[in-house]
Design a protein around this nucleic acid. Structure first.
Length: 342
DNA sequence: GTTCCACAGGAAAATATGGAGG
DNA sequence: CCTCCATATTTTCCTGTGGAAC
């Protein structure tokens, strides 16, 4: 059944990239100067989840490394490393400079000074999920350094921009912007077919079944590939030599639940209570959420803290906030899946 | 209009957590 | 094991906003 599990895993970067030629060429052109040793501009890559932002960024930097001898890449997931210190630390760690840094006894300025004094080969720094940074001024610190080319990945440009100050905003707005759209079903099918070709034995899944996966994934390649992986491993477990429609059905919900569960697991018990309340009674105003919350838990947190929870869950795509001021209501993100192209 | 009020979210102080070194 | 310190989370205090009632 499974020939090469790597190609079905999240984070795999394929040898060929499908249906992203425009973005590929655009992003490559930004880094063209690196080939002649010149500094490159900052690139901004945006788009909804599962459109290949991370994949494209890694792909472009890997291909550049094949062409140019002296380029290194640093990948930082800002969702995990969302403080300024952590990002700086990660960069220095990749430069091999962290030996004598003791926590924050080393001030930020010194970390930046060290990064500035770096004189090794050019480096591409991929800041994934950059809209999760609590302090985006790190972008400003890095922006002006010639040795570093920044790829800044975010879900939506406006989310990222709303947190930054004016001078940084104008700089970012003038940088190259690669915007990726959701995949169409046919494009997803092509992507899936490529993974099937490399990852699975021949004839274990039909094109019709791939179309079903593509359809239920709603333009999200990560979800589509996750479904394929889940179906293939279930088939292996049950000793089937083909992927059946029933397995597929189950795999689709499994894959969705997995993604969902992952963000749910990162919530504290209090945050999970708040989430459960919204799930049971949506849509709900902030006030009634808080009332129900105080009833449900011992030692409730303050209103302000719950507001922070809600804000966080909206960022994690667990909840949606609708309306402003007194009309605001929170609901589960699933209940509003109708996509609205402009 | 004007006022009122629930709400959003920033800043900073306070408190809890967790990890390193004794 | 305990203590100390950096870090993470929560609270306190606050300002600004916009819809609703007047």
């Amino acid at each position: 059944m499974i020939r090469d599990a790597r190609v079905l895993r999240a984070g795999f970067v394929p040898r060929e990239i499908e249906h992203r030629n425009a973005g590929l060429n655009h992003l490559s052109s930004v880094f063209e100067p690196i080939k002649s040793g010149e500094p490159a501009d900052t690139a901004l890559v945006t788009g909804p989840s599962g459109v290949g932002k991370t994949c494209l960024s890694k792909f472009v930097s890997e291909r550049l490394r094949e062409e140019v001898l002296d380029v290194e890449t640093t990948y930082i997931n800002c969702w995990r490393n969302y403080t300024r210190f952590r990002v700086l630390y990660q960069i220095l760690e990749d430069l091999g400079e962290t030996i004598d840094i003791h926590r924050q006894s080393t001030p930020h300025d010194e970390l930046i000074a060290r990064i500035e004094s770096y004189d090794g080969p050019q480096r591409i720094i991929i800041l994934d999920e950059a809209d999760q940074l609590e302090d985006p001024s790190i972008l400003y610190d890095l922006h002006s350094l010639d040795r570093f080319a920044i790829i800044c990945i975010a879900n939506r440009e406006t989310e990222l921009m709303s947190h930054v100050d004016d001078r940084l905003r104008s700089r970012l707005q003038s940088s190259e912007h690669v915007c990726l759209e959701k995949y169409h079903d046919e494009q997803l099918i092509d992507i899936l077919q490529a993974r099937v070709r490399w990852g699975l034995e021949p004839d274990v899944i039909s094109n019709d079944q791939l179309a079903t996966i593509a359809n239920s994934a709603a333009g999200d390649a990560r979800l589509a590939i996750g479904t394929l992986r889940s179906a293939a491993s279930a088939a292996t477990r049950e000793n089937c030599d083909r992927i059946t429609d029933e397995l597929l059905q189950q795999a689709a919900t499994d894959a969705q639940d997995q993604l969902h569960q992952r963000s749910l697991d990162s919530l504290t018990p209090h945050q999970q209570s708040v989430y459960a309340i919204v799930r049971e009674h949506e849509p709900l105003s902030p006030g009634s959420i808080y009332d129900r919350y105080t009833d449900r838990v011992d030692e409730p947190r303050t209103k302000r803290t719950v507001r922070t929870y809600l804000q966080k869950m909206v960022q994690y795509n667990l909840l949606v906030a609708d309306g402003s001021s007194r009309n605001r209501e929170y609901a589960l993100v699933d209940s509003a899946v109708v996509s609205t192209p402009p």
